[in-house]
Amino acid sequence: MSRLLSYRFTLLVLLGLLLSVAAERVPGRQLSLAPLLALTVPLWLVLTGLMALYWALRRRRITLLPLAVLVLAWPQVQRGLPLHAAGLRALASGYVSDSLAQQARPGATLRLLSANVRIFNVYAQLRKPDPAAPANFISWLAASRADVLCLQEFYQEPPGTRSADGSLFRVGERVGAESGRQVFVSKSLTNSSGAQFGLAIFSRFPIVGRGEIAFGRLSQNHAMWVDVAGPGPLDTVRIFNAHLQSMSIDESDLVKASSSKAGFESKGRGLLGRFIRGAAARAWQADTLLAHIRRAPYPVLLAGDFNDVPYSYAYTVLAGQLQNAWATTGFGPGNTYHGSLPPLLRIDQQFAGSPWQVLGCRIHTEIPYSDHFPVEAVYELRN
C-alpha cells in the first residue's frame, strides 16, 4: 500500500468512525439507515486501532491522529467492551460485589436482578429441550438474594386457575409472598383460563407506589414502575422495568440469509425491513421512557430487555442521562442473549440515575432457562 493510499485510507476510517458515532444519536424514524450505520461503530474502532498500530510501526507522526481519536472515542470502547478490574474479579469469584456491599453504609444498598423469563417456558415446544426448566427457573428466582426482581415476558397462573402442571406456575406466590416479597404485575394479557402475561416487579421493600407506561397501547412491549420504601438511608426510590420492541428477527431466516446468495435474496430484504422498523419503534419508546424518568421524584433505577445493543439510539439516549451498570463495572462484552443469533449481544440492561453508585454487575450465564441471561447488580445510594 503506497503512503498516499495509506493516508487516504486512514482518513476514510476516521470519517467512518465519526459518522457511525453520530448515527447513534439519530432516531431511526428520522433516518432509516442510521441504526445500521450505528451498528458499525465496533468495526471502525478496530480499524482505527489497526491504523494507529500500522503508523506506529512505521514511526510516522500521523500515528498521533488515530491515537488521539481512540482516546476521544474511549467511552465508545467502554460502552461495548468495558475492562474494569472489579468486573474481572466478579467474573473470577462468581458473585456480585458482596465485599463492596458490606463496606457501604448499612441500609444504603439495593441488589437488583432483571431477567426476561420467556413465560417460564410454559408451552411444550419451549420446554422440550429441558422439561425441568420452568421449575428450576422459578426456584432459582425464589431463592435469589436480590432485594428487587424485574421480570419481562412474565407469566403466572393466579389462585383459582388450573393447569396440567398444578401449582407450578403460581409464580406470584413462590417468588412473592413465600419469599418475603411484595409483587406488582403489569398485565398485558389475561387468557381465557385466567393466566396472566406481562411484566412484574417483586420487592422485599414495601411497594408504596406503582404505575404503567403504555407505548401507544398496552402490549407485551411496555414499561412499568414501582416506588419502594427502603430502610434507613435508602428512603424511597423508583424502579422502572421495561421491555422495548422486539428485533422481530427470526433465527431461521437469519441463518438462511447468511448461508447462501439465494437465501440472502429471499430473506435479506425482509430482515432489513423488520430491523429498521423495530429500531424506529425502540427509539420512540426510549424517548417516552426517558421522559417519565426525568419526571421521577425519587432516585431512579431502570432495568429490562431493551432489544438493542450498546451502539444504538435507544441505548445512547438512556446512557446520556443514566449510568449503565455493566459499562460502569463489568469486564468484557457481557452478552445477555442466549440463542443462535450472532454472539456478544448485550440487549438486557440496567441503568442507575444520580445519586446511585454502581458497586458491581454480573450476567448469570450459568442460568440457561430462557433465551436471555439474567442481569444482577448492586447499587449504593450516595449523598
Rank of each mutant, 00 (worst) to 15 (best):
W44P: 00
G268P: 02
H364A: 14
E173W: 10
R362M: 13
A115T: 04
R217T: 13
L244A: 07
L301Q: 06
G180L: 12
S219Y: 11
I62W: 11
D287V: 06
P129V: 15
W326D: 02
Y369N: 03
E153S: 11
A325Q: 04
A146L: 09
G194V: 10
C150D: 03
P129R: 12
L100T: 06
F306L: 15
F169V: 04
L15C: 11
P159T: 10
F9L: 15
R362K: 10
A90Q: 12
F351N: 01
D348A: 09
S370M: 12
V226S: 04
G334D: 03
A124Q: 13
Q30T: 05
A195C: 04
S203E: 06
A52E: 05
R29D: 08
L11I: 10
P35G: 08
E212T: 10
M51D: 01
L301A: 10
G263L: 14
Y369G: 02
P310R: 05
V183W: 01
C361K: 04
R294T: 03
G270K: 06
R118G: 00
F215C: 09
D130K: 06
H243S: 04
L345G: 00
A23G: 05
V255Q: 11
K187S: 13
R127N: 07
A223F: 08
G230H: 05
V255P: 00
V255N: 00
